[in-house]
Structures are given as C-alpha cells and as structure tokens.
Design a protein around this nucleic acid. Structure first.
Length: 417
RNA sequence: GGGGGGGUUCCCGAGCGGUCAAAGGGAACAGACUGUAAAUCUGUCGGCAGACGCCUACGGAGGUUCGAAUCCUCCCCCCCCCA
C-alpha cells in the first residue's frame, strides 16, 4: 500500500488534480492509511458506453484500487428513470428498464478494462441502484427516508438553486434523496465508507453522509473531483461531432487517439496527470517540454489513454495511421475506411460529393460542395478543384481511394475489384 | 384559478405582414499562418439542384391574407407576481 512517488493516496490524488474538496480530509486520510476502504462513484447509465468525461471518476477509482482499496460503481438505473437536476438545464430523457439493462452491461464491460472486478477483497463491484429503489413503496420510503430530510436544506443546495430559475420538477427534486439513500445502502450493505464524484455532486454526497449518520450511525466521507473544462472553455470529452466515447463502435480508436493528440497545449499537463498512470518523474519530464516539443507529450498522452481504453494493439495502429497520414503517406491500414463496390465506379463514375457524404466524412452533399470550393478536399493527396468531379476506377490506388477533408479528416474507400 | 412575460436556425439573441433561410455574438468547419497547438486574418455555416430554382424551418394545430416567424383562434411548455 505505497507508492514511490507519493506518501499517500490523497497526496497522489491532489498532485494529479483529482482533489477538489473533501468532507473531512484528516479523518479520511487516517481511514485510508489504516484499512482497506470501500469507495464508490455513481455513473449515469444514459448510454451503453461511457464517454471521455467519465474518465475522470474512473481514474479516481483506478488510483483507489492501486492503493489497495476497493472501488465500486453504482449505475443510476433507478435515478435515470427520474432525471438528474444536477447542473443540467433541462429535464433529461427518461429511460426504460430494458435500455438501462443494456447500458449497464456495456458500461460494466468498459469498467472492466480499468478496474479489476470480482469478489476479492479489493476487487471492484458494479451495482445498479434499481435493485434497492425500484420496489420501494412511496409511503414506506417517505416514512423511512423522507423524514430525515429538510426541505429548507435541500432548497439551499446549489444544485437545486441553479435549477430554480429554469424550473425543476418534483421528481428531479427528489434525486438528492435517492442518491443519499444509495450511499446509505452502500454503507449498510457493503461497508462503503467513501463516495467520490464530480464537485457538482457535493450536495448530494453530503446529504448521503447525513443519512448514513442518522440511519446507520456510521461516519462516512465524501471527496469530489474538479469539474473539468478544456482550456478553450469547452466540456471535457466533447467535440463538434459530439461526445468522445470509450466504445470503439461509437468513436473509432483512431478518432479517439486523435482527440488526445489534438488537445490544447494548455491542457496537456493536466491531462497527463489525470488520465495516464505514468509515474511522476515521466510526467514531469513531459511537462517540461515547450514549443513544438509539446507534441511529444501529446503523443505520449494519446498513446497512454488509447492503450488503456482500446488496448495496446489498437493504440499502436492508431498511432501508426496518424503518423503515416500526417507524414503524407496514404497507405495506412488503420485509417477509417468503408467498402465501395467496384461497379459504383464504372461508366460516369460516382460523384465525389456523393461519396464524401455517404462515407460520413461530411454531413451532406451541400457541405461537400462547399468544402471543395474552399479547397479543402483531397483525393489521394491531390487537391480537388472541380466540385462536379466523379470518382472512377482511375482514382483507385492500391485497391482504395484516399479521401481527405481538411488536414485532419481522412477516410479510405476500399474498392473490391 | 387570476394577471404579466416568454418559447426563433447547435447555443445566446434580434426580427414583429413582403426586401427572412431569418441581424448580431458564440460555437463549429475550411483556407492562410503554424507545431496535427494557441492567437490572428479570410471564408463558410438547413436540405436538394450544375444553375434558374425548389423544399423544409421560427413551440403545436388551424385560420385571415396575393403573401405570416411576424395578425387571429385553440392547445402545449417555461418564467414572474397574486390566490
């Protein structure tokens, strides 16, 4: 239970940037140094895959486990059927039980890549709060749990206040109580002593701590992570195309890798600390780089994160593909590609704008036409000037046509001859 | 339940009978510059069409008009005040 670079888990979390605030730092530090602590983080089961934004709490659990503690995840299966007021401006879409089950399976598989899950003393566990919430009867819940909550206190929570001006439905208002109840159950049934989460969860975590004290007469702790925004002010893990998913089906390993290569210079240091398990000397070496050398730090960042999420092989493929593309070579196998039947190219051929839209590189033929006008489109590396150009067999090189939009978007059409 | 204010293109936000695919800003995308970064400058930014143009869009459904995001009716949703 130690680490060469840091005297304690909390020290490491602080250095890496995970520590925003803690309900009782000294108490928690003592607890962590004395025994195996079970801690959990809640995840939204809103999709069958987690996205890059979830990487922060996941890594928080990873560090916990590395320090010999027991990480747990709660899928808000029941709460997803209600909606979460925290930091959201609109009522979230409600999910059905079937959707949640499917999402749970997907998320479980993903967490398994980061955490050692199982039944051992420090093996992680993933639970669905629907297990203990769905069957609970209203009157019973009010009697058992509701009486411990003060509406006055609830109204004072930031998560509620920020929703006051735009409206907050009663079921959303209850989210805090449900989440507090989760913590109480985790403590009672699994000996969980710590809940972690984004700082927007602070109020909910504190409510859970109160409930544990009242119902279980136990002392439990809360620790929150900072709410990350990118240096450019955007949400972490979001691009114009949408979220950066951890699932290869939703975000290809290549695109995932490129997301990290393309982060803002100002974010590199923070991200290395948060999202990689590199040791402190190595991170400090990379942080010392400046100017164009920062690219090396970005390459390492991309390689490390992609390796954890998609495996070493996929990470190496993505890296090789990127290197080939940006070095000008057009023969990389890992570039996103799709198949094109050879007969599409016979005769008149296939309009380029059609191909660009069909392969997903661009959203519409109109956009494709505009891009060509802006000299942004290249075929096999050669700039296209004619928006009416049609693809024919003449464009096939080594069994494929390399399409490129701008400097960073690539797609290959594999032509089956 | 009563009174007032609102719902506009990804977001904010103008428009208040034709000149509106809809000002302005932000985001985004492309070009130049560069380091697959930032900043800056330029351009683009609903769909289809080579083009004329056509279609879809201003909470929903109807209506008035040659013509509606703009006027009328009903409905839905949000905010504020009163009960």
């Amino acid at each position: 239970m130690h680490n060469d670079d840091f005297p304690s888990l909390i020290d490491e979390l602080k250095w890496r940037g995970f520590f925003e605030q803690c309900t009782d730092e000294d108490g928690l530090a003592e607890l962590l140094s004395g025994e195996t602590v079970t801690a959990y983080v809640g995840f939204d089961p809103t999709a069958e895959s987690l996205h890059a934004g979830s990487l922060l709490p996941i890594m928080g659990l990873v560090h916990l486990q590395r320090w010999g503690h027991r990480p747990m995840g709660i899928l808000g299966g029941a709460t997803a059927m209600v909606g979460d007021p925290t930091g959201k401006t609109e009522l979230r879409q409600m999910l059905t039980l079937e959707q949640i089950d499917a999402n749970l399976a997907g998320i479980r598989a993903q967490l398994g890549r980061f955490l050692r899950l199982g039944d051992g003393p420090t093996d992680g566990l993933l639970l669905n709060n629907a297990e203990w919430l769905v069957g609970y009867e209203y009157i019973a819940f009010l009697r058992d749990v509701g009486r411990h909550f003060s509406v006055n206190q609830m109204l004072a929570r930031d998560s509620v206040k920020t929703r006051m001006e735009h409206g907050l439905s009663f079921i959303e208002f209850n989210y805090m109580i449900l989440q507090a109840y989760d913590f109480m159950v985790m403590n009672r049934d699994h000996g969980c002593r710590l809940q972690m989460g984004g700082n927007d969860q602070w109020g909910n975590i504190v409510s859970g701590i109160d409930l544990c004290r009242r119902l279980n007469r136990t002392e439990v702790f809360g620790l929150t992570f900072p709410l990350l925004t990118t240096a450019a002010g955007g949400k972490m893990g979001k691009t114009a195309a949408g979220a950066v998913w951890l699932s290869a089906d939703r975000t290809s390993p290549y695109d995932f890798h490129q997301y990290w290569v393309n982060v803002d210079d100002r974010d590199v240091s923070r991200f290395l600390r948060l999202y990689t398990l590199l040791d402190r000397p190595e991170i400090e070496r990379l942080e010392a780089l400046s100017g164009a050398d920062i690219r090396e730090a970005k390459r390492v960042l991309a390689r490390e994160v992609t390796t954890v999420v998609h495996g070493a092989v996929a990470a190496a493929d993505a890296e090789r593909a990127a290197a080939a593309l940006f070095a000008g070579a057009a023969d990389a196998d890992s570039v996103p590609a799709s198949d094109l039947p050879a007969d599409a190219l016979v005769g008149e051929g296939l309009p380029l704008v059609q191909a660009l839209a069909d392969c997903g590189l661009l959203k519409s033929k109109g956009e494709a036409r505009r891009m060509v006008r802006q000299k942004a489109v290249r075929i096999n590396g050669y700039q296209v000037t004619d928006e009416l150009l049609r693809l024919t067999s003449e464009h096939v090189r080594d069994g494929r046509i390399a399409l490129q939009v701008g400097k960073k978007k690539h797609h290959h059409l594999r032509v089956a001859l």
